[in-house]
Amino acid sequence: MRVLAALSGGVDSAVAAARAVDAGHDVVGVHMALSRTRDQFRTGSRGCCSIEDAGDARRAADVLGIPYYVWDLSERFEETVVADFLAEYEAGRTPNPCVRCNEHIKFAALLDKAVALGFDAVCTGHYARIETAADGSRELHRARDAAKDQSYVLAVMGPERLARSMFPLGDVASKSQTRAEAAARGLSISAKPDSYDICFVADGDTPGFLRDRLGSRPGDVVDTDGTVVGTHDGAYAYTVGQRRGLALGRPAADGKPRYVLAIEPVSNRVVVGPADELAVDELLGGDVVWFGAPPAGEVACEVQVRAHGAPAAARARVEDGAVVARVDGGLRGVAAGQSLVLYAGTRVLGQATVTGTRRLSGVAS
């Protein structure tokens, strides 16, 4: 097959490309340039889009002996991932930019362009597995290494794009194995630190990035009864479940910590309250992506609402095209905008964006 290998400049994508070459595929490497403003890139390999990463990707391609190109996807990245990030926070929701990058950039812009150029598949260094079901359809599964599993952020891609994807690292036992393999192949990035943080927030200061883009918007922080207990410089800088950074002027009557319970963008208020008010029993999800037919009735599954969060047992059903998942024992601190992924064992059943939550005693948000 003709395979386009997405080379981020990290060890994972380089080893994934090497494995595609070993498998006999005709591999071409490509690095995605996601910003035209060079000072937006961070240094020290903290993110996945630094200046150093582009050079590391080129050197990896040289070692592998494959052609290498840089594709400018900066405009698409700004119009989709960054714009979505800002709009979601402005609306009082909590987005996951890695999910949106996979949706709009890696498995939309990149894959669509690859197919248009005659490539059969896109290969990435994500830790997830693709298995073929008895009916010939492809299934997305968790990686063998649970600590590195990235099926959560990949679930948004859907079955059509999964059919043209390759994840050669899905069966790797650990990241140390990937690093050892990179070293054995002569890849100089074998000891390169893992990327973290949001790649387009150059200094890692997300509230500062939001403030620079959205401006100062002072408002009140209120208790559940509407009593003003503090002020803020922008409700967009808060998320449900947050405790740190509230700077409340009045302590709670019981002396216990207070957490963000809700963000009200219209009134520009942040609502705080006790920890037990964060507990919810049902999650509501829209913009649903299914890997296979939607369940006809209620289905037992596990749900995950954070990239590195623990899965929780649940029962899910479809109502008017949306997902309703009742979680055994409930969850705490779930915010609208988060990605909700449903699993049956290691297999991804579907993905949705959280639109709201419910408590058995009433609506939580």
Rank of each mutant, 00 (worst) to 15 (best):
S8A: 04
G10N: 01
V11T: 08
V11H: 00
A17S: 08
A18E: 01
A18R: 01
A20W: 09
A20D: 06
V21R: 14
V21K: 12
D22K: 13
A23F: 11
G24H: 07
D26C: 07
V28W: 09
A33C: 13
L34D: 03
F41C: 14
R42M: 14
G44E: 11
G47D: 13
G47V: 09
C49Q: 10
C49E: 11
S50M: 10
I51F: 08
E52W: 06
E52R: 01
A54N: 04
A54K: 03
A54E: 14
R58Y: 11
R59N: 12
R59D: 12
V63T: 15
V63R: 15
L64G: 08
Y69H: 15
W71N: 01
W71K: 09
W71C: 04
D72W: 11
D72A: 09
D72L: 11
S74M: 05
F77Y: 14
V82D: 02
A83W: 05
A83R: 11
D84F: 09
A87H: 08
E88F: 07
A91Q: 03
G92E: 00
T94K: 01
C98Q: 07
C98D: 08
V99C: 05
C101P: 06
C101L: 11
N102K: 08
E103P: 04
E103I: 04
H104Y: 03
A109M: 04
L111W: 01
D112H: 04
V115I: 14
A116L: 13
A116V: 08
